[in-house]
Structures are given as C-alpha cells and as structure tokens.
Amino acid sequence: MAAPFPVSCARRIQKELTALHAEPVPGVTLKSGPDTLADKSTDINMIIKGAEGTIYNGEEFNLRFRMNERYPFESPEVVFQPPNIPLHPHIYSNGHICLSILGNDWSPALTISAVCLSIVSMLSSCKEKKRPPDDQFYIRTASMNPKATRWMYHDDNV
C-alpha cells in the first residue's frame, strides 16, 4: 500500500481496537495489530474459536483484516488465513468469505467487532461442514484480494 495512511483512519482503527479490548466479542481474541499508528500496513489478526455446542467446537481459526486508506468508507479486506480454514458453505478454501457486509452492504458505521460478530454467528448457525458449490473453480482463478470478487449473495440462511 503506497498511499500514506490518513491520521483520521489510523485513529478510527485505534479506537476500534481499544473498544474491542474493553468489550471483547465472545470467542474472538486479538492476535496482533499494527505496530504503530503511522504504519502503512494495517493488518489485524484475530483468533476465532469455534463456540461450544456448534460443529466448530474446539477449532481455532486465524482471521486477517486489512484496511486501506479509504477505511472506514470502504470495507476492509477480511480473509481466513491458512492452515485451518473453516469448512463452511460461504467460506472458500482459499479463506475468502462470501458475506454481504464485506461487500455491497458495508457501511462506515460497521466495525471490526461487528464483522467478527457476524462471522462468529455465521459459523455458529452452520449445521453442515461443506465448501461452497463453486469452490473448486473459484480458488483456481480468484485474485488474492476477495474484494476483487463480485459475489452473489444467494443464501441468507446459513
């Protein structure tokens, strides 16, 4: 990311991390955040634990947030990191997540917490471990950045 990171954007991320520390999302812990606020790289790594009573009980997943300088007006890039990528009908085996709030339905009022909460709830409500039907041809050609994909959000039930 070549463009310098605006102060307002860095401050907002810092505020979100502080809020996340004060009011953690159940099952989610911060693994590492940006070292300094002026840092051009804003990778934030979270650990998501599969909740008790769900099919992901006992599993741990790494989730990476990457913000660009237009955050929070533009959505963050959110992907699961290998090796352990949840088997879920909306999560591709390369870690990309098909979730409308990360694309068309993003709003600057959403936060890292809100996204984590959505992902935890998406995992918790899943009844069957399987990949999306188009996983094989998606991962063969997809770009590294999930935001280059125009998703079709066809199923809100899982």
Partner: peptide, 13 residues
Amino acid sequence: DWGIDCMSRHWFA
C-alpha cells in the same frame, strides 16, 4: 446474464 456457467469457466478469466 451472470450465471453458474460463467463462474465455472471464466470467473476471473
């Protein structure tokens, strides 16, 4: 129209 066929053959070209 975008469809499953396009996804399988050339989603990302």
